[in-house]
Each structure stands twice: as C-alpha cells, then as structure tokens.
Amino acid sequence: MRTIHECKLYVVSGENYHPDRGLLEVMEAAIRGGADIVQLRDKASPKRELLRKARAMRELTRRLGTLFIVNDHPDIALAAEADGVHLGQDDLPVASARQMLGPDRLIGVSTHALPQAIAAERAGADYIGAGPVYPTGTKPDRPAATLSYISEAARAVRIPFFAIGGIHPGNAEDVLAAGASRLCAVSAVVGSPDPEEACRRLRGYIDRRQASRPPSPSAAARARLTVNGRAVETPAATLLELAAEYRLADRRVVAERNGEVVPRASWPDVPVREGDRIEFVHFVGGG
C-alpha cells in the first residue's frame, strides 16, 4: 500500500469535463498515465449516487494500487472504505473529520495562503492542496494564489503539499521550479482527449525535476539572524516564511525587524537578511 509521502501526481475527478466518457474509464486512464492518488469530486450527485461512484472508484483504485480520496464527505469515505477525505476551508474542521475517520485515514485540506497551510498542518492534516496557482475553470471565483505561495509553502510546510489550480503540461515546469514537488490536476487531465498521455507528461516533469533537485537546501542559502534574542540559521527568505518556520504565521503576533515594526500585510514582502534582528511579540498578562 502506497503512503501519501510517495504520491507525486494527484488527479481529481470532474465529470463535467468528459460528458461522453465514463468516470471510471477516465480515472483509469489517468492512473495508468502515472496518477498515484485520485479524488472523487462531485458536488452535484445525491449522496446515494455519490456512494455508488465512490465504491466503484474504490474498486478501481484497489485494483490499480493508488490512493483514493473522497471530497467533502467523511461518511461516504468511510462507507466506501476510501483512504481518506479532502476538505475545503468551509467544510468540517480537521479535528471533527479526524474524530469520524480515526487516526489512520488521510485528511487533506485545500489552502489558499500560507497561514491556512500552517493551520491545517497544525490541526493534523496529512497533506494539503496549495493554490489555485493559476486561474481555473474548476474554481472560477477564486483569485489565483500565484507561484509565490508555492515558494512559501515549499519553505514553510512540512507535510506533503500538492500544487493545484490551472496546472497543465505547459506550465508544470514553472510550478516545479517555484518549489513544488507534487502536482494536482483536474481539467488538464480529465478534460483531455487523452488523460493517460496528459498524466504521463506531468509525471515526466515531476520525475525529471526530482532527479535534478539537490538533496537539501545548501548551507549558503541560509541566513544567520537573531530572533527574539536567539542566534538562529534559517532558509527563510521573507519575514512570513520566518514566522511560518516558528508556527507563528497564523497567530496574533507582532513583528519587528531591526527595531522597526513590520505591518503584517508586508510580511510576505519584507526580506530577512544575514545579521537581522527580528522580534516576534504578543500580549501577555501584566499590570
């Protein structure tokens, strides 16, 4: 059985993209092309119909040896014996889903900015989706999070993250260059006339990038700073990344760099450099 850490290419279903072909046919093609984790995403079907599809997907993925995730519904995931559930920011909180699913099933969370990623990680998510990297037809209302979020996530997120949103073979290399090592695609695969070939191409970019990537960040890229009076070394390039490193990105803390307050809105843009003195402070009891 595969683990989430081994997974590199995530394909999410979208039956509206292939009205003339069946769900299982398209998903099987995707898996044969190299998808190693797939998700049933269907906002339209009633639950009974959804369960029927989930059971069929479970059958397929068990046979082909890939992980299977159900979007939104822990109960369907349990009933269909899926490997886990994927939650949006407005769905059940991770803790509630964890109560229902137990410790072994996977919980993934969609995130659109680094504080959400950190929060999901702290809440016990097994992986996150990070995006949308590019504007996408799957989520037409959501502004793109852009490649900068991918770079931030690459530095600050420790659980596996899948870059998602408008990714296709034509831009996959850019996303990987920004720091992603895992990709997720919807329309570029299931909307393609040849889902297997689309996955093969995406998979090729992922594997080539992986092979050429240095094993760990080089020591030269790390800055030596003083954070709250302590000498530290960090790979962080911005104040936000530094905050994320200490799990402070989503907390009510205030930051000062070299004696000057840095408003939170500028954390993503303020660089941290060799020799900087950074303070992260908060309110505590006092008279």
């Binding site: 954070v227 709250n228 402070l248 303070e279 402070v281 309110f283 505590v284 009891g285 006092g286």
Partner: peptide, 10 residues
C-alpha cells in the same frame, strides 16, 4: 484592562 508585551516563546 492592562497587558504586557513580551517575546513569543519560539
């Protein structure tokens, strides 16, 4: 109500 400002425990 009053507070103090202190470093976050990293």
């Amino acid at each position: 109500i009053t507070f103090a400002i202190r470093r976050v425990n990293l």
